[in-house]
Design a binder for these strands. Structure first.
Lengths: 138, 138
DNA sequence: GCTTGACCTTCCCATGATGGGAAGGCCCAT
DNA sequence: ATGGGCCTTCCCATCATGGGAAGGTCAAGC
């Protein structure tokens, strides 16, 4: 049995976050010693590592909770897990696309900016917005 | 002169956020009517639109502040603006790459999961972490 | 047995950007 | 003058994370 600090080191999840996960019900409440210290065994550490890895893969907490439920109940169809993973892939895809659009716009703007010592870079004009006349701000 | 609600509609920035931007110093404090209402003119609306557009392009508030400073002082070299934009492109690149790595890992896992009615999907094993034996959690 | 230092506990606060909502004041049209 | 819609400030919540204070505990060294 380990203390929360040891479990943190073994799992890569900070002690702060372990307490938070417990508080929010993501993980079950840890056992306690007579004096109130939380205790963790290998199983608990593995759960924490599971959470860590899922978070690293970009799963939001809510989805991590679903994955944990599936993990706890091994009789669930693998299709459920697969669907969660596929949904996460799709979510990442959407966010990647959004950012790529931002990038494309910025690249376009950068190409139209001399980048020399002169003032007047069209990027600022674009940001100022086309709808109005390019009045200089106060 | 418009009220905050009109400025919000004209700029696409919510009234809440306009007050927040003012509070945090991103934009200068608006003028006030005798009875305390904030007033906005076309220039202020343009600034708000500037902020909105920059945020849409993924610039963090801090960078938006820098861009605004550059905008306010048109004598600054266009190189400054270009560098900010390029840095933002690079930042987006890093985040995109991170997410693509997550995607790749997930795709790999999904390919190894039958996705049928049987239990036991290797995704869960991966999440559980290789370092230990695949002990089932409590 | 006592001190010391490392650890644990809970509790509160902060982040960043945004929204929700309450309580109270203002403005304009009817 | 009344009502509805707008404004004001202030507080609270989000999500996941960290910082830090105040106080208890444990183990090692003397």
């Amino acid at each position: 049995m380990m203390t929360i600090g040891e479990a943190a080191r073994a799992s890569g999840v900070s002690a702060k976050m372990i307490r938070y996960y417990e508080e929010t019900g993501l993980i079950p409440a840890a056992g306690r010693t007579g004096s109130g210290y939380r205790t963790y065994g290998p199983k608990e550490v593995q759960i924490l590592r599971f959470v860590r890895r899922a978070r690293d893969l970009g799963f939001p907490m809510e989805k991590v909770a679903e994955l944990l439920a599936l993990w706890r109940d091994r009789d669930r169809a693998s299709a459920d897990v697969r669907h969660l993973a596929e949904a996460q892939i799709a979510a990442l895809d959407r966010r990647i696309r959004e950012m790529q659009e931002m990038q494309a716009t910025l690249s376009h703007l950068v190409r139209s900016c001399a980048g020399d010592d002169r003032p007047d870079c069209p990027i600022l004009d674009d940001l100022g917005g086309h709808p109005g006349e390019p009045a200089r701000p106060a």
